[in-house]
Amino acid sequence: MKVLIFAGGDIEDYSFVNQYVNISDYIICADSGIGHTRKINLLPDLIVGDFDSASQEDINYYREKDIDIKNFPTRKDKTDTEIALDMAIEKGAKKIYIIGGTGTRLDHSLGNIHLLYYALQKNVSAVLINQNNIVHLIDKEIIISGEKGSIISLIPFSLEVKGVFTKGLDYSLKDAVLYSGSSYGISNVMTSSTATIAIKSGFLLIIQELKD
């Protein structure tokens, strides 16, 4: 099952969104993420949050559409996006796309990157997507599809990542070790339309450029 989550971060260009709407089985909005779905005339399946940032107009609009809305207290131990992620996992999601998870709130952006680890610990693949990038987190192997010439950056999420192997990248790695605190893996380049990245231990963030 594929679930799409709309969080409340910045989206300047919605042209990339439809491809993820079309392949998703279920759509969840986290709080002011409803502002994004309303702009593109999309009815989500579920809306969650404390609604401290969503507009009352948007809330009323979806209430009139009889969309399932779950309210949570403002004082809580999880962000609205994490609550949405929990709901997606409870629904049986195996792939989760998070749109609107990055923006001017750097704390939320970093927190949402950590939610990729939270999902991975539950054997669920989650990615953060905006108009410029896709952020993956792996503990084994991934095959990435993209455009030749796209930038791929490899950033250790654990203190070290061992046994790093790449295929289809300009700067190839074989049984390499990447260390936290180093910029060694920044700005590699895809040499074809696919790239394989594998690791033996640790956790590796992969930031993939989306070319126009």
Rank of each mutant, 00 (worst) to 15 (best):
I28A: 03
I28R: 04
I28F: 10
C29L: 08
A30V: 05
D31T: 06
D31Y: 00
D31K: 02
S32L: 10
S32K: 11
G33M: 08
I34T: 12
I34H: 06
G35R: 10
H36G: 12
H36P: 10
R38L: 04
R38M: 09
I40S: 13
N41P: 01
N41I: 01
L42Y: 09
L42S: 11
L42V: 04
L43D: 14
L43Q: 14
P44N: 09
P44F: 01
P44I: 02
P44E: 11
D45I: 07
D45F: 09
L46K: 11
I47W: 05
I47M: 00
V48S: 02
V48K: 02
G49V: 01
G49K: 06
D50R: 07
F51D: 08
F51H: 09
S55N: 12
S55H: 06
S55K: 15
Q56H: 13
Q56K: 14
E57S: 15
I59N: 06
I59S: 06
I59T: 08
N60M: 13
Y61V: 05
Y62L: 13
R63A: 13
R63M: 15
D66Q: 14
D66I: 03
I67T: 15
I67P: 05
K70L: 11
N71I: 12
F72V: 02
P73V: 04
T74V: 15
T74I: 15
K76C: 09
D77W: 04
D77Q: 08
K78L: 08
K78Q: 03
K78W: 06
K78D: 09
K78M: 11
T79P: 07
T79S: 15
T79V: 13
T79I: 11
D80Y: 05
E82K: 07
E82P: 06
I83P: 04
A84P: 10
D86H: 01
M87E: 14
M87F: 10
A88G: 08
A88F: 00
E90K: 11
E90H: 03
E90F: 04
K91V: 00
K91C: 02
G92F: 00
G92I: 01
A93F: 05
A93L: 01
A93Q: 02
K94Y: 07
K94L: 07
K95L: 10
Y97S: 03
G100D: 02
G101S: 02
T102H: 09
T102C: 09
G103R: 06
G103N: 02
T104L: 12
T104F: 13
R105L: 13
R105P: 12
R105N: 15
L106M: 14
L106A: 11
D107P: 07
H108T: 00
H108N: 09
H108M: 10
H108I: 00
S109F: 10
S109G: 05
L110V: 11
G111Q: 08
N112R: 02
N112L: 06
I113L: 15
I113M: 15
